[in-house]
Design a protein around this nucleic acid. Sequence first.
DNA 1: TTAGGGTTAG
Length: 578
Amino acid sequence: MSKFSDDHLVSLIVSSTGKSHLRQIHAVLLRTSFIRNSDIFHQFLSRLAPRDLDYSRRVFSQRTNPSVSHCNSMIRAFSASETPSEGFRLFRALRRKAFPPANPLSSSFALKCCIKSRDLHGGLQIHGKVFTDGFLSDGLLLTTLMDLYSTGGNSADACKVFDEITERDTVSYNVLISCFLRNKRTRDVLFLFDKMKNEVEPDGVTCLLALQACASLGALDFGKRVHDFIDGNGLGGALNLNNTLVSMYSRCGSMDKACEVFNRMRERNVVSWTAMISGLAMNGFGKEAIEAFEEMLKCGISPEEHTLTGLLSACSHSGLVDEGMMFFDRLKSGEFKMKPNLHHYGCIIDLLGRARLLDKAYSIVQSMEMKPDATIWRTLLGACRVQGNVELGERVISHLIELKAEEAGDYVLLLNTYSSVGKWEKVSELRSLMKEKSIHTKPGCSAMELQGKVHEFIVDDVSHPRKEEIYSMLAEINQQLKIAGYVAEVASELHNLDSEEEKGHALTYHSEKLAIAFGILMTPPGTTIRVTKNLRTCVDCHNFAKFVSRVYDRVVIVRDRSRFHHFKGGFCSCNDFW
DNA sequence: TTAGGGTTAG
């Protein structure tokens, strides 16, 4: 074996990939003096550990005096494995022996172990030692620490750590941005995207994160700016960025732009197709989503679970019952090499519920091979609301209570179900129960972006500086719509008001109506009105928007909790399957 | 997986 030189051996190690090959190399090392060479052993272990953790655990424990890098290779491998907590245990054991000496890299790897195993306590221990260890100037360790707080939902502490980093680079900014995104501070993401440019250059990851924030806010204009930045900085060819752009434009209700990006892509994978299918689904283009799915199969790309979710939700949002059931059967048959998951079931139950086939939906819930989760029950509850099925609605709520998963929105759905069939005594009973349980409903809130500024409205909003104009515009719209045949749908109103007139009055000030009135007031004729709503839009507001689109000849795009409604010429893209 | 490390698509 002496024919090996150091260089030969190292290149052999570096080029080997298989477990057995690496074990053979280990045998060679053991038979020669190379095993005593710390550098070569490091090369070997860093190659072996991520590929064969069990074997490297043994190899490592046989080493009498492991070096810093040997230990780090092990901790690193654990941090990427299924048993990350073992990495932290190893780190602690080594620290107790104080050999090899502490170093920022092993602290970083150990932190990763804690983050992955959701061990906040362990992570805090490492943070507690950063100062005494003298690692305060290690930007990379601090960046990992930010991620610890970020995953623990503590963005304030992540910010504090960020402030302590003396030399921030793009990655430290990215980690902060990803922290904001994860913790729903989406506006801060956009702010930081602009601000960081004074210090460092945003990269592809930054753009990816910023696009996700735009998608979640529905901030189309900002999204376009990020798109320009991508093209202007030579990042336009990246597959992941293009996929995210398709998703961002879809989630901002701009299918034209989403298709444009998709059609221009030189390379497409299953994620690209899934983004496109889900985007079409979300925007009510069910037939087009199905066409895209078939096109994808023709291209020889196999669908994944997300793809089927997009496809089935396309069917449910467009009321394509037969098509949806057909795809569901094909899914169950194993044609797509997967089994239906909770999301797929959710789509099918939604589809049947919207189509008023409640019994069938319920029997599918009962036949599921896995335990229905809260979302499944909630979907069924939505169907009960559509159909005014009080009895099943009550049963569903009891399932949610059993799962300890009931939310304010669920009670609102049940309230809606009661009020839709005029059970006012039940409504007030449930209201007092909610009071007792101190369940607070989220107020409906609609937002409209106007020249880069977001205007928000809540029900009966009187806080807007131009409220008087808005309210008189709304009164005028109501007048015009009435002439065109619009009648307020009183069942949408939750409260048991005394007269029909009063009910009609209370409806007038739903947040989306205020936002639409504001849009008509502030934009020139013909401009598309885009409204984003935090909850599901009610029957009456849906009707209202349809009439507005015809009477005022405007395209009105309302983003709901989960989907878009494109109103044009008195019709909605959802075919009233909202 | 090219530099022992931190961020990343549907």
